[in-house]
Design a protein around this nucleic acid. Structure first.
Lengths: 357, 357
DNA sequence: ACGGTTCGTGTAACCGATTCCACAAAACCG
DNA sequence: CGGTTTTGTGGAATCGGTTACACGAACCGT
């Protein structure tokens, strides 16, 4: 009778057999396979100097063979660097912010940073909550479009104590943090000069109200530029929020107000879209009855009828500058806050062209 | 002569003095302040049972006093749960995806999950890279809108080995993963029936090509529904990608092709927007000369002239269902893949209404 | 040939939590 | 009231890397 004797190693062989299936490899496995210590293996991946070519080769080969990936969480715990930046916007689905997010995503990708996105949906309370969540670790830096030019101050101040913050598009008064946005003065100068070229006299400003820095800034810019152009006159501006709905109601107000201005200067494309849509339902024609201009340069503006004259923000440039500043801060720079206002570009389209008589 | 003798403790006192300023508190500090062990303190925060009310109180009080926050990275390392889900889309700035992202952000926020956003910009290679990055730790689950109905298979398969994956809007053939999207058949049925109501006979389909499941699905749905409605006839569909530019060129092709169809059925709103804009520049009028319908229900559709008839996707419902499935999977469920096609809703507007003669 | 650098490496502490295990005190039970 | 279960707690290992420090070998100039 033959007794088949199990090989003695079987006890230890079993786990060996299971292993390939179960756990994903850790650095120590790679180190073992390469015949070096974990320290050396680690050095290879954090490409520190002073590792022999031989070791590098062995470790790389082993990690290839085992299909090894460094665990970003473990690394983050030790180094306190996550490779992630948070971005907080008031409304993701607003095409302007969508455009901004896309531009930011591009530059972050190039810098090998991940993007943690949060939407405050215009609520200060939600914004504050997100700032706490994002601020307390987990991101290396924060790109924020503040909801309110003043009430966002405290939450942002606290967040910026924990992590570098760069403000995008809108800024908060007295917050010592970098800011990147558009040059509103330049933008409105272009619009008004363009309208002057069209022979316009009476204009109306339709824009966002005082709660955001862009609302304030564009209104102030409008007034300043208006003063410098005596040929132009304007009634009281119509102020609301940066929404299609407000644009519509502003258009109704304009029409109800009796004498129509020759041109409606809108503080954003979204507003202008609302204005144009409502004017149409009221039986008025753009540009025959009134000219309309927007601000921001969202892609939709070239698809309306008529195509909308607008001030195009250089999204890519803004995003690049914001990312540059943020990386500087992450790198430890703590000079005084930078404010960078990028000059936009006028895109004149049919909505502001007087038709030949 | 008096020699001032430094107190002996000075060596140790120095660090003590610095401490309050510098480091943020860790769990062990809270535990010490509360007079319990870190183990107990930890139990308080991971609200495990079997902690005495006294201990809970002490720990909470101490953590309040020290303004303590748990470090999510450390917790993630230990528990292998990050509280983050990744979302990968082909184009953030496309309003359809922006809308989808916004809806997803809403439901994730309710579930206390963070959103790590990535944009493949239509590139399969970039998509594959992101899937690796996102898949290898760092997120608990993945919501993906695949770029290609087939070529996205391998990268997605690999990613879904590492982490639960739910497909959104588009799906990949033979990928064993959940899917949530719109019911294309229902959508096109509504469109065609609506057009029939308008007395339309000859229609043209303008849609995305075979590379995406939505392109394939909508074309197939169109053909099926067409067969079932002998009253309708259609030429060869015009296929391209889901872009404004393609919509424009399709419109030109339509016009150049001689006899115009009575209605252009577009596979997406974006395409329809392009079609309408180009028809206008060609001097044709919608809906007088040709009816146009879109698909998706992006907000822009009610701002065009004329407002665009479309098939509105229930973004909130889709996002909610996707999040529900993903959380199930994260919770460990591994039943067979679910496919959930949500029925959309027709929004009939002026672009598809024959004007009274 | 010899002290001083430089180089490459390994050992072990550490990042900040969670959780297994052991153990004492308290509660329960007949 | 002794024995068993339950409850609350702490010590210590662990998650998976990075890095300060120590140390021997190779290299340097004189």
């Amino acid at each position: 009778m033959i007794v088949y004797e199990m090989p003695k190693e079987s006890d230890t062989a079993l786990p060996d057999l299971m292993e390939p299936i179960s756990r994903k490899p850790r650095l120590r496995d790679v180190a073992a396979a390469a015949g070096v210590s974990v320290a050396t293996a680690s050095r290879v991946f954090s490409n520190s100097p002073n590792v022999s070519p031989a070791a590098v080769g062995a470790v790389l080969a082993a990690s290839e063979r085992l299909n090894y990936r460094l665990d970003p969480i473990a690394r983050a715990l030790r180094t306190q660097v996550t490779g992630t930046v948070g971005m907080l916007v008031p409304d993701i689905s607003n095409p302007f912010f969508a455009e901004l997010i896309e531009a930011v995503a591009r530059v972050l990708e190039r810098a090998n940073l991940d993007l943690l996105l949060a939407d405050s949906r215009g609520s200060l309370e939600r914004e504050a909550r997100w700032l706490v969540t994002l601020g307390e670790r987990k991101v290396d830096g924060l790109l924020v479009v503040p909801s309110h030019h003043h009430q966002s101050l405290e939450p942002l101040r606290r967040a910026s104590a924990a992590v570098p913050v760069v403000q995008l598009d809108r800024q908060v008064d007295d917050l010592p943090a970098d800011f990147v946005g558009v040059d509103n003065i330049a933008g409105l100068r272009m619009v008004l000069d363009h309208l002057l070229d069209q022979g316009v006299r009476r204009v109306a400003m339709i824009s966002g109200v005082f709660t955001t820095s862009t609302g304030r800034g564009r209104l102030a810019a409008f007034r300043t530029m208006l003063e410098q152009r005596p040929a132009l006159e304007a009634g009281e501006p119509l102020l609301g929020d940066f929404s299609v709905a407000f644009g519509r109601s502003a258009a109704r107000a304009l029409v109800a107000g009796g004498q129509l201005p020759e041109a409606a200067v809108c503080g954003s494309d979204i507003i202008a879209l609302g204005v144009m849509a409502e004017l149409r339902t009221l039986g008025l024609h753009v540009p025959r009855d009134v000219l309309v201009t927007g601000f921001d340069g969202i892609p939709m503006t070239e698809l309306t009828d008529p195509p909308l004259t607008t001030v195009r923000q250089p999204f890519a440039g803004i995003a690049a500058e914001a990312a540059r500043l943020l990386q500087l801060r992450i790198g430890g720079d703590d000079g005084p806050p930078q404010r960078s206002e990028i000059v936009p570009e006028l895109v004149a389209r049919a909505s502001s062209h007087r038709e030949s008589p």
